[in-house]
Design a protein around this nucleic acid. Structure first.
Length: 519
RNA sequence: GCCCCCAUCGUCUAGUGGACCAGGACACGGCCCUUUCAAGGCCUAAACUGGGGUUCGAAUCCCCAUGGGGGCACCA
């Protein structure tokens, strides 16, 4: 069955390419239609991504449409964030805000007349009716139904109002909404490309409100009108729309329009699996917002390949796919209809792998802003020398500041305890450090090749493991017990600074020694 | 309460009636490499929700149960 669906999708595309077709849009046209009512999260990012993948594999168009009919909750900040996030992710739209297009405007608030005309059409052909019931009464009815354990639906008071009465009351200025007149009997069958046919009894479909008292259309009407007007061929949207899917099909059929292919994407669940993903329920190290993840040092490549894989498979031996790779392999049939928990461990893994794939110059450029944010004015040329040392250690770009900060600022003096490895006394540590310092000072070239062999020999001479000796030097030079490779780091820090830090550490240990004697 | 959807390792998934004592990835554990931390290499452990059918044969098809999810606004 699913296999057939894939074939059908293909032939559908082929149909639109056919010269015989009289449709306005000869190729795949998809849309991503968010409402600008909050932050842009990874669920939206994935929906947008899948739409882009589908459009790009047939040189179709990806349309960004803003569903801002909820005037109470829509904000300009949210609209800006949607666009910024999409651009950051590399999901540029072909038509929509900022770029225009043949179906402009692309925000629904600016298209209200269009919806009103279509509502009137439905009123005229008997598929819709005016409802004069007050919001208060509706609420009371709903509560009563809830209490009686009945399905909560409009009770139909205004459904059979005569045309004359309806016109008269509207003309008299009585406020009204326009409702869809759902058939009372029979059933409706709709087809989801992932789930196959879904049939529901029409009695379970409410007489949904299409146009509010203020004359503004609701999603159910506006989206259907726009999808048709804009020649959308495939609708890939969240599965939260599955419940109203039959209604949407009914609306389209009431207009006599052809239906697009529908595909309802699974939702993201919280990491715990308990309920839909939300801001709560993730740690401070994690975020469900695209731009926040960006600021935490995640790459757009990582976000895309990660979200793409939650709820789908690409049949590739290699999981890390870039946009081109995903476009090549994306198939609606390979989407998974069941909900997926977000898995941040996998994001970390992907991000680290993407970072390791980056070229040194590319990575350096991406790192710079994170140093700036940390108040470090990193010299790009210097950073580029450091990057190979830290690249395999990074999970996020932000980690670079922790690993490489020591190259750009004064490191705090280490305590005697920190300078003394487990199993050694401060006196032994001091002896080792003095011997090492002498060797380093005497070294003709200040390079890994020149420094490492003699120090390795020294460790042997002192009866220390290389790790013990190098650990003392590491702490003295970097001020940290953990650092990028020691000799390469010393090379970059430079002879003068290294010797200074070694001597400072020696002094600390001498102090500890005299304290020891005093005690 | 009503409607709808979904169901393979802890997680994301492969699987489209025989090639499956179920494959991969993440996480977990172990080993190797190793100057720390990583990275890298190798290996272990880990699943078809249950019950009925259909069939010579079922993870795969059907039914029921159970579990999970979504929706039930003059939001989208």
């Amino acid at each position: 069955m699913i296999c057939d669906l894939r074939l059908e999708t293909r032939s559908h595309v082929a149909d639109h390419r056919s010269p015989i077709t009289n449709r306005k849009s000869p190729m795949t046209r998809v849309r991503f239609a968010p409402s600008p009512t909050g932050r842009f999260h990874i669920g939206s990012a994935r929906t947008a991504l899948y739409n882009v993948l589908l459009a790009r594999q047939s040189s179709g168009q990806f349309i960004l449409r803003i569903e801002d009919t909820d005037t109470k909750r829509s904000t300009p900040e949210s609209l800006a964030e949607i666009q910024e996030a999409l651009r950051w992710l590399g999901l540029q739209w072909d038509e929509g805000p900022g770029v225009g297009g043949p179906h402009a405007p692309y925000n629904q608030l600016a298209r209200r007349e269009l919806y009103q005309q279509h509502a009137q059409l439905l009123l005229d052909n008997g598929h819709a009716y005016r409802c004069f019931c007050s919001a208060e009464r509706l609420k009371a009815v709903r509560e009563q139904q809830q209490k009686a354990k009945q399905p909560t639906r409009y009770d139909g008071t205004c459904r059979e109002l005569s045309r004359e009465e309806s016109e008269r009351r509207a003309a008299a200025g009585e406020p009204f909404v326009i409702r869809f007149k759902t058939p009372k009997d029979g059933s409706t069958t709709v087809r989801d490309e992932l789930r196959g046919d879904i049939t529901v009894e029409n009695t379970t479909i409410d007489d949904y409100i299409l146009v509010k008292t203020d004359g503004l259309a609701l999603y159910h009407l506006a989206a259907m009108v726009d999808d048709h007007e804009m020649g959308i061929t495939h609708v890939l949207r969240g599965s939260e729309w599955l419940g109203t899917f039959p209604l949407h099909a009914l609306i389209i059929r009431a207009f006599g329009w052809p239906e697009p292919k529908w595909c309802h994407l699974s939702v993201f669940l919280k990491p715990t699996g308990k309920g839909k993903m939300s801001k709560r329920d993730v740690t401070s190290e994690q975020s469900i917002y695209a731009l926040e993840l960006r600021d935490m040092g995640y790459l757009p490549e990582a976000i895309n390949s990660w979200t793409a894989l939650m709820g789908a498979s690409f049949g590739a031996e290699e999981e890390l796919l870039d946009l081109a790779g995903m476009i090549e392999r994306f198939k609606i049939a390979n989407l998974n209809p069941s909900p997926a928990r977000v898995n941040f461990e996998k994001l970390d893994d992907f991000n680290g792998k993407w970072i390791r794939r980056l070229g040194i110059t590319d990575l350096t450029g991406r790192l710079l802003p994170f140093f700036a944010k940390a108040g470090i004015d990193a010299d790009p040329a210097l950073l580029e020398r450091i990057v190979p040392l830290i690249q395999p250690r990074l999970v996020t770009l932000d980690d670079a500041v922790d690993f490489a900060g020591l190259f750009f600022r004064e490191v705090p003096a280490s305590t005697a305890e920190a300078l003394t490895p487990k199993g050694l006394t401060p006196l032994q540590a001091l002896g080792a450090l003095e011997a090492a310092n002498a060797l380093i000072k005497a070294s003709t070239a200040f390079t890994t090749e020149a420094l490492e062999p003699p120090l390795r020999t020294l460790a042997e001479t002192l009866g220390l493991k290389p790790g013990q000796l190098f650990g003392i030097i590491r702490q003295a030079v970097t001020g940290q017990p953990v650092s990028p490779p020691l000799f390469e780091s010393m090379e970059i820090i430079g002879r003068e600074v290294v010797l200074g830090r070694l001597e400072r550490a020696e002094a600390t240990l001498r102090g500890a020694k005299s304290e020891e004697r005093g005690a």
